[in-house]
Design a binder for these strands. Structure first.
Lengths: 117, 117
DNA sequence: TTGACACATTCCCATATGGGCATATATTGC
DNA sequence: GCAATATATGCCCATATGGGAATGTGTCAA
């Protein structure tokens, strides 16, 4: 079956670093295709393709403006990722808490050792 | 160059739905490979492969327990995704706010219309 | 109409994939 | 040692990819 299509899912669409870059750039406001291509140091066709993927999964919107097309971020499209990853928030906090507790324990031992000297 | 390796990145590793399922299952605690394979309704080798990917990107830890290997979630591995998507939180809140304002505006109009009747 | 510009689409190719399957590699109990 | 169980790994294949390059489509201005 091979890997899922990049357009099958927001997760797959966002797996590509350049597409994440595009979203970051668009968070500053609308941009034209050439604009984005220049910033990404990518040729125009690739920029168009990436934008096409992002559009198919609903992460960006397009608007015609004369002979250029302005792409805008659709922030809501990222919510599924946020919601999913948020369900694990407690998990990594717990790991950090354990690390924190461990470090505190080390420091305590250190103080005790110093005291014994 | 083709698509990036699934092991190149947490984003790529998590793009596969079954791997997300695995992480969800592991958030309930350690599981053996067969255990996971059964829950995912996947054959054992595929489960092992997926777990291998997750391990390579640091999303899970393994621990030998007799003749089985228990996999555990490493929540901190998901933090990069959380951090990235969090930078867009304002974006979709704004969209939602606009939607909210729009709906409120509609309701107001509706009330006014009723009043006029 | 014609040319210039912005963008989209198509074809090519090297590459990695995930599943099926068979097989190697532990580890345990006898 | 040997069989049984749990897991990992290797090979196969169909499929989708992202970049390069060329070409199609649309819009403007003269």
């Amino acid at each position: 079956m091979a890997r899922l299509a990049t357009t099958s899912d927001v997760f797959n669409a966002v797996a590509e670093p350049r597409r994440r870059q595009i979203l970051t750039l668009l968070s500053g406001g609308e941009r034209s295709v050439n604009d984005l291509a220049r910033q990404l140091r990518v040729r125009q066709p690739q920029a168009s393709k990436h934008l096409g993927v992002l559009r198919q999964v609903g992460l960006v919107r397009v608007r015609g403006a004369g002979q250029q097309r302005l792409y805008a971020l659709n922030g809501q499209g990222l919510k599924p990722i946020h919601d999913w990853v948020k369900t694990f928030e407690r998990q990594w906090n717990e790991s950090l808490d354990r690390l924190d507790a461990y470090l505190k324990e080390l420091q305590k031992k250190e103080r005790d050792d110093v005291r014994k000297r």
